[in-house]
Design a protein around this nucleic acid. Structure first.
Length: 938
RNA sequence: GGGCGAAUAGCUCAGCUGGUUAGAGCGCCUGCCUUACACGCAGGAUGUCGGGGGUUCGAAUCCCUCUUCGCCCACCA
C-alpha cells in the first residue's frame, strides 16, 4: 500500500507538477465565478463579499509588491468563499496614462522618433496594439500564484464600458459646478510634457544652493547703483527672467521706505517694482523675495493679489524661452539663453550675475524638491490652463464616512493620516497633456466661440451655431478613471446593473499605503458622490516588500524578487505562506533577493511538511472510503482522539478570532462598532494558529500516537481512520486560503464518502467547531506531560534512542494522582511509542520500588532505572521546589491580604489570584508530602 | 516646519483591553537517516523587552522624557 502511494506522491513536494493542473481544475469547476442572483441584496441567500483588485498597470509584469497584495486578497476571497459568501473578486488593469505612454515613447525613441513625428492617431493605434498584444500579462501571471479572480468580469479602465463611466462622472461634476477650468501654476514635468497633480509631484530632500542676488535700486533718472538695492535669495536663479517684482514684508522696517520704488532686474535689464506682501518672511534669507508669478505657486498668489503680469519664460520642455504669443511684454529671455536647458541656464545666469557683480554670495541649502512620480524629473511650477475638480464638497462626506465608522482603515494609524489629508484637501488637476488616456469630453466651437460644450456623447457640430468644433486636446489623469473602479467595474453608470445592485458596496480594499491618497481616498469620495454610499467598509493597508537592508524593492534599484522565480523554485504555496505568515498588520515584509532559499524557507518547509503528513495519512488510511465521524460511536474515541478533536475546535476558534468579522455586524449600510473597528484581519496570527495545529498538534502528537492503530489488523483501525480523516479534512480547509494548491491536491485524494467527482476544496465549507471534547482532551495532556518528562530524562542521561526503559512513578500513599496513575497505565502503548518507556506505578515506598525493579527487571533495567530516579537528586530538587513555591505563595498571600489590592483590582483578577493561591497551596501540600515520603528515610 | 510609527532572542518579527514562568520562524548547540518527512525528529542554549523617570498591588504593555531609526504631509523664497 505504501509503495503505491510512494509511486503517486513523491517524498519531496513538487509544486511545478501539480499547480497548473489544479488551477485548471478550479476553472473547470467554475469555482471562482460569482453569481449576482445569489446575493442577498437582490433576493438571493448569500452575503456578497467583493474585492476589486487594485488594477495593475496594463503593461506591468508581476513583482513582489503584487505578490504581497494579491496574496492577501486571495486569502480573504478564499476564506469568505468557503464561509458561504457569494464571493466576487474583480480583476482588471489600468491603462496607466503616463506610464504606458512612456513605454511607447521609449520604443519610438529607439527608432529615433518622437510621438510628434508619428502623430496622435498613429501613436494611439500603436499603443493600443501594444496593449492588445502584451497587455494583461500580469493577469496571466496572477493565475500562477493562485489568484481566484472571476475572470469573466475582467475590466480595463480604457474599455468602452469604463470610458462611458468616466464621461458620465466628468459631465455630472461639470454640471454640478465641481469641475472647472483654471488658469494657475501647476506642477509640470518637462520630460513627460504634461501637468501633474499634487500627489504626482513627489517631495524629495535635496541639498541645493541658495543664491543671494543684488537687485540695484533704480533712481528717478534711470540710473542705478549696485551698491544700493535689495538682495533676494533664490534657489532657482534661472527664474529671475520671469520676475515681475520683489516683495518685502509690510512691517519690515528695513525695507518699508523702498516699497513703491523700482529695482533693476539683472540679466533681463528690466525695472520691476518693490511691493509689500505678508507672504514674505522677514526672518528667512534677506527678507526680500523675488516674485515670479508664472513659475512659483506662492508667487502666483502674490501676483494675483497685486495684479502683476505673469510672463512664462520657459518652454514646456524646460528650455529657456518665452511662450509664443506671450503678449506685448518686453522680451525677457536674452538670445544667448534662449533654448538652453533650465539647469544649464541656471549655471550661465549664475556666472553672469557673478561677473557683473550682482551675485552677493551663495550658501548651501537643504530643501525638498518635487519630482515627477513616473520619470523622476525635477518638476517645474508653470502657469497654464488646466481642468480641476473642486474637492472640498467631495471630501466632506468621505471624511464623515470614515469618522463615523462606515469605513475603517487598518492599521489604525492610517486612519489619522487619512483624516488629516482630507481636512486639508486641495483641488485636483485632472488634465494631462498626453495622448494616451480618456480624452476630455469638452468641445470648443471654432466659429461662435461660446461656452465650452461638455457632453456625454461625441460632438460634431456646435449646438448653438452649427459651426465646426474641436475637442479639448488633453486627456484625463489616469486616476480619474480608477477612482470610479469599484462602481464602474460593476456596471455604473447603469444603476440597474445586476452586478452593481448585487455587489456594491464592495467589502475590503486591499492595498499598500502608497496609494492611499492617489486612489483610495478618491474612491471613497467618488463612491459617496455618485452612489451615495461607501465603496467598501474596510481598507486594509499591508506593508511593502523590502530587501534585507530595508530598502523598498524596486526595479530601478535592482533589488526586486520575481514571484514567478519563487513559484518555479518552491511553489506558489511556499510564496504565499511565507508572505502571509510574515504579514503583521501593516508591517513591511523583508526578503532577500540574493538568497531566495533562505527567504522562503518557512513556506517551503511548511509545504513539504504538509505534503508529507498527507502522504503518510493517505498511505496508512488507504483507499477504502471512510465513514463520516458523526456516525461512528463517539464513546469509542480514545483520549488522543478526543484531544485532537478538542485541539481542532480550539484552532478553528482561534482562526476565526484572528480573521474577525467579515463585515460590520450592523449589516448593509451599517457602521463598524467601536469594539470591532480595529479588530480582525490578523493574517499572521491565523497562519500561525493553523500551522501550530497541523504541525505541532496533528503531526507531532496525534499522528505519532495513532500509528499503531492504523496497522491493517488493528482492532481500533476504523475509529482512528475516521478521526484522522475528519481532522485532516478540517485542517486542509483551515489552511486552504493560505496554501490553496497543496491543500486542494491532498483533499482530492481523501477517501471520504458522499463527494461528487467534480468537487473542489476551494468551494467547500469552512470548518465549524463541533462537540465538546475538552474534558477527555485534558487527560491526554497528562500523557503528553509524562512523555515530555521522560524524553527529557532520556536526553539528560544520554540514553540511546533505541533503548527501552521502565519508569517507576512513585505514588506511595496511593492517594495523590490516582487518576494520573490510571491514565498513564491505560496509555501504556502511547508511552511506549512516544517515549520508548513503560511506566509502572509503584504504591510501595521508593526504596521498595527500586528493589522490586532491580529484582524483576534484570541487568538491562538497573542502570536506566537508577539513572532515571535518582533519589538524592530528586529529594534535593523537591525541597528546592517546595521552598520556591513557599516563597511565592507567601508573596501571593501578602498581595491578597493587601486591602488596596482587593479594593482596586478588578474582581475577576482577584478571583484569578485566589484561584492561584488555592492551587499553589495544594501543590505546596503535595510537595511537602512527596518530600516527606521520598526523603523521609534519609 | 507639522503629523505618525518603530525600538522585544544572533536575524525577521508576534505579544490585541496592564495579570501565572515574554513566544514563533530562521539561525545556533547536542543526539538521531525511529518503515510520512534530514525541507525532518527529539532535546537544549540565548532576552537589563532602547536609556531614564513616573502611575499601579502588579508594567514589554499606560504616562513623561531622552536616544536612535523609519514613514507621511508641507505655500523652507
Amino acid at each position: 500500500m505504501t509503495s503505491r502511494i510512494d509511486r503517486e506522491l513523491s517524498p519531496l513536494y513538487e509544486p511545478g507538477s501539480i499547480e497548473p493542473e489544479i488551477y485548471e481544475r478550479w476553472i473547470a469547476a467554475n469555482a471562482f465565478d460569482a453569481h449576482a442572483g445569489n446575493s442577498a441584496r437582490i433576493g438571493g441567500e448569500r452575503h456578497p463579499f467583493t474585492i476589486v483588485i487594485p488594477p495593475p498597470n496594463v503593461t506591468a509584469v508581476l513583482h513582489m509588491g503584487h505578490g504581497l497584495d494579491e496574496t492577501v486578497q486571495d486569502v480573504l476571497m478564499r476564506w469568505r468563499r468557503m464561509c458561504g459568501d457569494e464571493a466576487l473578486w474583480v480583476p482588471g488593469t489600468d491603462h496607466a496614462g503616463i506610464a504606458t505612454q512612456n513605454v511607447i515613447e521609449k520604443q519610438l525613441a529607439a527608432e529615433g522618433k518622437t510621438r510628434f513625428d508619428v502623430g496622435r492617431a498613429a501613436f494611439l493605434s500603436r499603443t493600443e496594439e501594444f496593449v492588445r498584444v502584451t497587455g494583461g500579462t500580469i493577469l496571466e501571471q496572477l493565475r500562477a500564484i493562485g489568484a481566484s479572480c472571476d475572470w469573466s468580469r475582467t475590466a480595463y479602465t480604457l474599455s468602452p464600458a469604463l470610458s462611458r463611466a468616466v464621461r458620465e462622472a466628468f459631465v455630472r461634476l461639470y454640471e454640478k459646478g465641481l469641475i472647472y477650468r483654471g488658469h494657475r501654476v501647476i506642477h509640470w514635468c518637462s520630460r513627460c510634457l504634461t501637468s501633474l497633480s499634487d500627489e504626482e509631484a513627489e517631495h524629495e530632500e535635496a541639498t541645493g544652493t541658495l543664491y543671494h542676488v543684488r537687485y540695484p535700486l533704480l533712481g528717478a533718472d534711470g540710473s542705478f547703483d549696485t551698491a544700493h538695492g535689495l538682495t533676494v535669495a533664490t534657489t532657482r536663479p534661472e527664474t529671475l527672467l520671469g520676475d515681475v517684482a520683489v516683495a518685502v514684508h509690510p512691517d519690515d522696517d528695513r525695507y518699508r521706505h523702498l516699497v513703491g520704488r523700482q529695482v533693476l532686474l539683472p540679466i533681463a535689464d528690466l525695472p520691476i517694482p518693490v511691493i509689500a506682501d505678508g507672504y514674505t518672511d522677514p526672518a528667512f534669507g534677506t527678507g526680500v523675495v523675488k516674485i515670479t508669478p508664472a513659475h512659483d505657486h506662492n508667487d502666483f498668489e502674490v501676483g494675483v493679489r497685486h495684479g502683476l503680469p505673469m510672463p512664462v519664460i520657459m518652454t514646456g520642455a524646460g528650455e529657456m524661452g518665452e511662450e509664443p504669443g506671450g503678449g506685448a511684454a518686453p522680451r525677457r529671455v536674452p538670445a544667448d539663453l534662449a533654448g538652453l536647458d533650465r539647469f544649464e541656464a541656471r549655471d550661465r545666469i549664475v556666472s553672469a550675475l557673478d561677473a557683473q557683480g550682482f551675485l552677493v554670495r551663495r550658501e548651501t541649502h537643504q530643501h525638498s524638491v518635487r519630482h515627477c512620480y513616473r520619470c523622476h524629473t525635477v518638476v517645474e511650477p508653470r502657469l497654464s490652463d488646466q481642468w480641476f475638480v473642486k474637492m472640498a464638497p467631495l471630501a466632506a462626506p468621505a471624511l464623515e464616512g470614515v469618522r463615523r465608522g462606515d469605513i475603517r482603515i487598518l492599521p489604525e494609524r492610517h486612519h489619522a493620516v487619512y483624516i488629516n489629508w482630507m481636512e486639508n484637501i486641495r483641488d485636483w488637476n485632472i488634465s494631462r497633456q498626453l495622448w494616451w488616456g480618456h480624452r476630455i469630453p469638452v468641445w470648443y466651437c471654432e466659429q461662435c466661440g461660446g461656452e465650452p460644450i461638455v457632453s456625454r456623447e461625441d460632438v460634431s457640430a456646435c449646438p448653438s451655431c452649427g459651426g465646426l468644433v474641436r475637442q479639448d486636446e488633453d486627456v484625463l489623469d489616469t486616476w480619474f478613471s480608477s477612482w470610479l473602479w469599484p462602481m464602474s467595474t460593476l456596471g455604473w453608470p447603469d444603476t440597474n446593473s445586476e452586478d452593481l445592485r448585487a455587489f456594491y458596496p464592495t467589502d475590503v480594499l486591499v492595498s499598500g499605503p502608497d496609494i492611499l491618497f492617489f486612489w483610495i481616498a478618491r474612491m471613497i469620495m467618488s463612491g459617496y458622490e455618485f452612489m451615495g454610499e461607501r465603496p467598501f467598509h474596510t481598507v486594509y493597508l499591508h506593508g511593502i516588500a523590502r530587501d534585507p537592508s530595508g530598502r523598498k524593492m524596486s526595479k530601478s534599484l535592482g533589488n526586486g524578487i520575481d514571484p514567478l522565480d519563487v513559484v518555479r523554485l518552491f511553489g506558489a504555496d511556499a510564496l504565499r505562506y511565507t508572505v502571509i505568515a510574515g504579514m503583521g498588520m501593516g508591517v513591511d515584509v523583508r526578503l532577500d533577493p540574493d538568497d531566495l532559499e533562505k527567504s522562503f524557507t518557512p513556506g517551503r518547509n511548511f509545504a513539504t511538511k504538509l505534503w508529507n503528513i498527507g502522504r503518510f495519512l493517505l498511505g496508512s488510511v488507504g483507499r477504502e472510503l471512510v465513514a463520516p465521524l458523526g456516525s461512528s460511536d463517539l464513546s469509542r474515541l480514545t483520549r488522543a482522539d478526543a484531544w485532537i478533536l478538542d485541539r481542532l475546535n480550539v484552532a478553528i476558534a482561534e482562526c476565526d478570532g484572528a480573521l474577525g468579522a467579515a463585515r460590520p455586524t450592523a449589516g448593509d449600510g451599517g457602521a463598524w462598532r467601536e469594539e470591532e473597528r480595529f479588530a480582525g484581519l490578523r493574517l499572521n496570527e491565523y497562519t500561525e494558529t493553523a500551522r501550530r495545529f497541523v504541525w505541532n498538534e496533528l503531526a507531532d502528537w496525534y499522528v505519532e500516537t495513532t500509528k499503531s492503530r492504523l496497522a491493517p489488523d488493528a482492532e481500533d483501525r476504523e475509529v482512528a481512520r475516521s478521526v484522522l480523516v475528519h481532522v485532516f479534512d478540517a485542517a486542509l480547509r483551515l489552511l486552504h486560503p493560505i496554501v490553496p494548491f497543496i491543500t486542494e491536491s491532498l483533499w482530492q485524494r481523501l477517501p471520504v464518502s458522499g463527494r461528487s467527482p467534480d468537487a473542489v476544496l476551494a468551494t467547500q465549507r469552512w470548518p465549524a467547531r463541533d462537540g465538546d471534547h475538552a474534558e477527555a482532551g485534558r487527560e491526554f495532556a497528562v500523557v503528553q506531560e509524562a512523555v515530555m518528562a521522560i524524553r527529557q530524562l532520556r536526553a539528560d542521561h544520554a540514553l540511546p534512542p533505541g533503548r527501552a526503559v521502565e519508569v517507576v512513578v512513585v505514588s506511595p500513599n496511593g492517594g495523590d494522582g490516582t487518576n494520573t496513575a490510571r491514565v498513564l497505565q491505560e496509555e501504556d502503548a502511547t508511552l511506549r511509542r512516544l517515549a520508548r518507556a513503560s511506566v509502572r506505578v509503584a504504591t510501595e515506598t521508593p526504596r521498595e520500588a527500586a528493589a522490586h525493579a532491580l529484582l524483576a527487571g534484570g541487568a538491562e533495567l538497573v542502570m536506566p532505572l537508577a539513572g532515571l530516579i535518582d533519589l538524592d537528586k530528586e529529594c534535593a530538587r523537591l525541597r528546592q521546589e517546595r521552598a520556591q513555591l513557599g516563597a511565592q505563595l507567601e508573596a501571593l498571600r501578602g498581595r491578597l491580604a493587601n486591602e488596596r489590592f482587593t479594593a482596586k483590582a478588578p474582581p475577576h483578577i482577584v478571583e484569578v489570584e485566589r484561584e492561584k493561591e488555592r492551587e499553589w497551596s495544594q501543590r505546596h501540600a503535595q510537595l511537602t508530602s512527596k518530600v516527606k515520603s521520598l526523603c523521609g528515610a534519609h
